[in-house]
Amino acid sequence: MKSKGNSKRVEDLNFWTGFEDNVPQEIRDLIFEQYLGEDLYVYCDASIKNRLQSVACIFVHNASTVLIKKMVYPPPDCLDKSFFGEMGAVVYALKNFSKHMMPSCKSVTICSDVSSMEQWVDGRASFKNHNLQKMQNEMILLYEKVKLQNPDISIEVKYLLEEHKNYHPFYKAVHNAARSVLRRNR
């Protein structure tokens, strides 16, 4: 795959136009490292409004981003359960990350803004609601499947720390993308 542009010109990048002075150096370093690196970072989020749900993912690496989004259709007992959509966003990321990976990629990190996601994906926590259990099982099975299919790549699902959400352009982009799907489908 051909590299896009000269990634050595980091000083030309500005993800925070108008807010640069407010952004902690730790966040700047994190964003530049992810954006310019060969490892793949996937930020995913869900949105819910008036019993409609949507998911979005942004794939970040090699000085590029790709954003995908769609509506999700939960069963009736999950229409008002945001966890259904949040797990659906991770499933969406797991189903699509290989399309956006460079051959040299050694690590895929899927980031969620739900603090329990790591426990859900490895089965340490579960739900009483049958359909949430079903979605969790789908996510766990898919996670294990993609790890087996990609033995040379480290694949993990991580919680995006609260302090990393502020001024985080990839998190903001995926959050806004999920919300935009609902605005179009009123």
Rank of each mutant, 00 (worst) to 15 (best):
K147T: 13
L141I: 07
V174D: 10
F32M: 07
R28M: 13
P76T: 03
K158E: 10
S98Y: 04
D122K: 03
A89Q: 09
L94P: 12
G5D: 12
Y159M: 07
M1S: 09
P74H: 02
S104K: 10
Y35E: 06
L36F: 02
S180E: 11
G5P: 11
K69V: 13
C78V: 10
R51Y: 14
I140E: 04
I153V: 14
T109C: 08
V114H: 15
I110Y: 03
N96P: 08
N137M: 10
N176E: 15
D80P: 06
A178V: 10
M87L: 14
M101Y: 01
I58K: 01
K81Q: 12
L182A: 06
Y92E: 11
S180K: 13
R28W: 13
F84D: 13
L161V: 00
L132S: 10
E156C: 09
L52W: 02
A173I: 02
N166I: 11
F15H: 04
E86V: 00
D122Y: 06
C111Q: 14
L132P: 13
L40W: 01
D77Q: 04
G18C: 05
P151S: 06
M139I: 04
I48K: 00
L67N: 09
E162F: 03
F32K: 04
I27P: 05
K70L: 08
M1K: 10
E156H: 00
S82R: 08
S107P: 05
Y167K: 00
Q149R: 14
E138K: 14
W120I: 07
S7E: 05
T65P: 04
G18L: 12
L40Y: 01
M87F: 00
F59L: 12
C78H: 03
D21H: 06
V121W: 00
K4Y: 11
L142Y: 03
R179E: 15
T109Q: 15
L160A: 05
G123M: 11
V66E: 15
C105K: 01
Y73V: 11
D39C: 03
S116G: 11
H168N: 15
R124E: 10
L141R: 12
F59S: 05
F127Q: 09
N50T: 07
M102Y: 12
D39P: 00
N62L: 07
F170K: 01
F97C: 08
L79R: 02
K69F: 00
H100R: 03
F170A: 04
Y171Q: 06
A56G: 04
G123K: 01
K145F: 06
E156P: 00
I27R: 02
W16V: 14
N14R: 07
N166C: 08
N131E: 15
Q119D: 13
S112A: 11
I155K: 03
H100N: 14
D39R: 00
F97T: 03
R186H: 09
V55F: 00
K147P: 04
K4C: 12
H164L: 13
S7I: 12
E38H: 08
Q149H: 08
